[in-house]
């Protein structure tokens, strides 16, 4: 951008006049900042942007943005947003949700949104805990987690939202972390450019009920070892001086390569037709492997709303029917 051009909208223009009610120190503040940065960078028009949310801490998000916002009911934001987007595909529709909202009560809407490839951008804040109800385990909490509702440790196995999305046929799947401001901003920009459903899983620290859930990912001294940054067209490398890599065997089992074998590190292609490498990364053991962040998958595919509206347009072009004709369809007769 040249220095003489001033952006029409500044960061402050994207902020609403409402007081923010998240706990001090919550990761949500950082996410809000990153999203505002991205929106400012993209110069999104306030009146053409709609943010739809469900229920939970994350779902208060729309109140803090000076766009159109709809704070709906638990788990249903993707369903409401689908109605918004299909009715008016010109709108830029974002969904803000959490791991309880999207993975538990709203799991059904989540997978079917992906399946249909509705042009929604979904920001899922994953803090691996229920925050607003004060600390019960969530579908992404690790097994054995001791919470108020699992005093002896949770028996549930968690699942990977990324793997779930890939399994449901998602065309854009990415992951970032609340405090990785520029990485997150970049991911939001990439999601914004995608025409189908774009899922961004955002690791978010709940400093009240699950503090430090991502500590090894975010702490400076462990970050290099624990984070695998996915970069399109580049090998999967991590660790000090990128001295380690991830390779796959013939059945897409990942393994770590070092030294002379570093050349075997897999060259990442986020646009690959097969979801197998992305699925392998999404499901690899967190204790043995680093945590991948970045874009897992990005594929072009016609979105749902354009398909629906195309049928409407085709039907209108093919046959104009007046109300009179509609009522007089079928067999009619006159009584005199």
């Amino acid at each position: 951008m040249s220095t003489t051009e001033q952006p029409v909208l500044l960061k402050k223009d994207y902020k609403s006049d409402q007081d923010i009610r998240w706990c001090p120190g919550c990761g949500d503040y950082a996410i809000l900042n990153a999203v505002i940065n991205a929106f400012t960078k993209l110069q999104k028009k306030l009146h053409e942007t709609v943010i739809v949310s469900g229920i939970g801490c994350s779902s208060r998000f729309p109140y803090y943005m000076e766009t159109y916002g709809f704070h709906t009911i638990h788990g249903r934001a993707p369903a409401v947003a689908t109605g918004v987007k299909v009715s008016n595909p010109a709108l830029d529709v974002w969904v803000v949700t959490g791991d309880g909202d999207a993975m538990s009560i709203g799991g059904n809407h989540f997978i079917h949104t992906m399946r249909r490839n509705v042009g929604l951008k979904i920001l899922m804040f994953n803090n691996r805990i229920y925050g607003l109800t004060k600390g019960q385990y969530s579908p992404t909490s690790e097994q054995g987690k001791v919470t108020k509702s699992s005093p002896m440790g949770s028996v549930d196995y968690p699942f990977s939202p990324i793997a779930l999305a890939l399994g449901a046929g998602a065309t854009f799947v990415g992951r970032s972390v609340d405090i990785f401001l520029s990485h997150l901003e970049e991911l939001v920009c990439k999601a914004s450019a995608h025409t189908g459903t774009a899922l961004c899983e955002i690791y978010q620290n709940c400093n009240i009920f699950n503090d430090g859930a991502y500590k090894t990912v975010t702490e400076k001294d462990t970050r290099e070892e624990r984070v695998l940054q996915l970069e399109h067209g580049k090998p999967l490398l991590f660790g000090a001086d990128k001295g380690k890599g991830i390779a796959f065997d013939a059945s897409f089992q990942p393994y770590i390569v070092t030294g002379a074998d570093l050349g075997k590190a897999f060259i990442w292609d986020e646009t690959a037709e097969t979801p197998a490498p992305a699925m392998a990364l999404a499901t690899m053991s967190e204790s043995e492997f680093p945590v991948p962040i970045g874009v897992f998958r990005r594929r072009d595919k016609p979105n749902f709303e354009s398909g629906v509206q195309a049928q409407v347009a085709a039907a209108k072009a093919k046959k104009q029917t007046t109300l009179h004709e509609l009522l007089h369809q079928g067999e009619i007769w006159e009584v005199k």
Partner: peptide, 27 residues
């Protein structure tokens, strides 16, 4: 459809009504 009617077979009853609410919200 030629009479400006969009239909959406939702994944469940809840999504059905929620999508209708979203549609109303957008006019």
């Amino acid at each position: 459809k030629n009479l400006n009617v969009v239909t959406f077979q939702a994944e469940d009853e809840i999504a059905a009504v929620c999508s209708a609410i979203g549609a109303s919200y957008s006019g």
